[in-house]
């Protein structure tokens, strides 16, 4: 199934590009309120003429043929000195007259930033804890693994929700909270791989050769530990994005007005009966992203896991 891997990589690359290039891709500043009175909740594809009035920007529905007058909120006014600029809102606007497309594009940044940082934290924690537990064994192992069990016994969302709601809601806090609550599975996989390898003759041989422990670790353990851990991590990135979005949706994650897909959807719930586009587009972006990571995990599993080949 090389197709899955290719599709997911293409999708993720595109996503990364969008996130990095957000300032150039986004048609407007994501927080700019384009004439909240006249340009609120515009359906996707609407065009408005933006007229710069110095202190504020007005969004005109229509211009007179000679461009000297414009129609805004049902009344005609004359254009002052600046030339009206046509602007198309591809995905519509929200209730403050902000461009949904720009907000979705910037939302990709927040989601990916949090996801990547969290994944790194949990990967390092998991490898460390699992490695120490598997290598040391005995009491250290028992204690570390019980700790992992205790954390694992909770629905992660509850734990994260409680921590984020009661402690703090900055982006850094989310990364720390999510990272410290999602390393357990990685640790478990690492530990069991190390236990498995420790019992093999190959490792005894390597030891007998008198290699230094760091060298054994990087050259003879890590290559075995990494594939299953990476497969798992690819799947976890999707989970983490989902949890961050849920958190932001409930109002405990990334705080508005900074756009994240979760809080965009939350803001959309208030205008659900009038404007479907505000809710649907960020959700679609979110789903597509998580799907891409899921496909990546599947593809990686096919590729790296010898048991699933053939």
């Amino acid at each position: 199934m090389r197709l899955e891997l290719r599709c997911s990589l293409a999708l993720l690359l595109l996503l990364l590009l969008v996130a990095v290039a957000a300032p150039w891709l986004a048609p407007l500043d994501p927080n700019q309120q384009v004439d909240p009175a006249a340009a609120r909740l515009l359906p996707p594809g609407s065009t408005r003429y933006l007229i710069d009035e110095g202190a504020r920007t007005l969004a005109a529905e229509q211009l007179s043929p000679d461009q000297s007058e414009y129609l805004r909120l049902g009344s005609w006014r004359s254009v002052s000195d600046s030339a009206p600029q046509p602007r198309r809102f591809w995905l519509g606007t929200d209730r403050y007259g902000r461009d949904v497309a720009s907000r979705v594009v910037y939302g990709a940044r927040a989601s990916l930033r949090v996801a990547v940082a969290t994944t790194l934290v949990s990967l390092v924690l998991g490898l460390l804890v699992g490695g120490i537990a598997g290598w040391r064994g005995g009491l250290v192992d028992a204690l570390l693994m019980r700790m992992a069990d205790a954390l694992f016994a909770f629905p992660q969302l509850f734990l994260v929700l409680a921590a984020a709601a009661l402690w703090s809601t900055g982006e850094l806090a989310i990364v720390v909270i999510l990272g410290t609550t999602s390393w357990m599975e990685t640790a478990r996989i690492t530990r069991s791989e190390i236990l498995r390898i420790r019992g093999t003759d190959a490792l005894d041989a390597v030891r007998g050769l008198g290699l230094s422990p760091p060298r054994i670790l990087t050259h003879h353990l890590l290559p075995f530990v990494l594939p299953p851990v990476l497969i798992h991590t690819a799947l976890r990135v999707g989970d983490i994005i989902l949890i961050e979005a849920s958190l932001s949706f409930l109002g405990f994650g990334i705080q508005p007005p900074n756009p994240s897909w979760g809080n965009l959807i939350a803001e959309a719930t208030d205008v659900l009966d009038r404007a479907w586009w505000v809710a649907v587009f960020p959700g679609a972006a979110l789903t597509l992203t998580v799907l891409a990571f899921g496909l990546l995990a599947d593809g990686l599993a096919d590729r790296l896991d010898p048991r699933r080949q053939g």
């Binding site: 999707g238 989902l242 979005a245 849920s246 949706f249 959807i265 959309a268 719930t269 659900l272 009966d273 479907w276 809710a279 649907v280 959700g283 979110l286 789903t287 597509l288 992203t289 998580v290 799907l291 899921g294 496909l295 599947d298």
Partner: peptide, 25 residues
């Protein structure tokens, strides 16, 4: 397989909102 992955990828709250959009509004 694709269907189940897509379902897994769809956030529950968003599915809820889409359902609300379709079946109540």
């Amino acid at each position: 397989r694709v269907l189940s992955l897509s379902l897994y990828a769809t956030p529950t709250f968003w599915l809820g909102i889409v359902a609300l959009l379709c079946f109540t509004y």
